[in-house]
């Protein structure tokens, strides 16, 4: 049982995308809806910020400075013990733009928790983020109960 019961901090969302407009507009929308937002403009910075900020949800683009950058960043996240269980929503137009790359994003081979195609429906994305935050909260509570027992 915690000694003091303070206000619950807002959930943190890390947006990894090289498109400044997209990051800013999505970031403003998420902040308006009570979420804390951090931003990274490439995969490496994304992984570094994920380690530093430990976000609840990561919104990851795929085609950034390199067209497979998000795929490599996602794998780094999945292979880092501290980040392995962080929810990652891939938001990308990869499958609309990439000729000859016909592997379905619906298969979780990339390691994503969810795939949402660009152009993105902000309401749907917000619902997804909230669902992942809520699921993570439940997982943390179960873990804490286990540790207390």
């Amino acid at each position: 049982m915690p000694l003091t019961q303070g206000p619950v901090p807002p959930a943190t969302v890390l947006i990894v995308d090289d498109d400044w407009d997209f990051r800013e507009s999505l970031g403003s929308y998420l902040k308006m809806n009570g979420l804390r937002v951090v931003q990274a403009s490439d995969g490496r910075e994304g992984v570094r910020l994920a380690m530093a900020e430990r976000p609840d949800v990561i919104v990851m683009d795929i085609m950034m400075n390199e067209r497979t950058e998000g795929l490599f960043a996602l794998q780094s996240i999945r292979r880092t013990a501290a980040l392995r269980d962080t929810a990652v929503i891939v938001v990308s137009s990869l499958y609309a733009d990439a000729a000859g790359f016909s592997i379905s994003p619906e298969r979780a081979w990339m390691g994503q928790d969810e795939f949402i195609a660009k152009p993105v429906d902000l309401t749907r994305l917000l619902d997804s983020i909230k669902a992942h935050v809520s699921r993570r909260g439940e997982q943390v509570a179960v873990q804490e109960r286990k540790e207390e027992a």
Binding site: E66, R67, T68, L71, F72, Q75, G100, W109, G111
Partner: peptide
């Protein structure tokens, strides 16, 4: 394998381990 698709191929390989 087309050379221009090598990056995609390397991404797919990540299912099999760290590249």
């Amino acid at each position: 394998l087309p050379k221009q698709q090598l990056d995609y191929f390397a991404s797919v390989l990540q299912q099999f381990g760290e590249v």
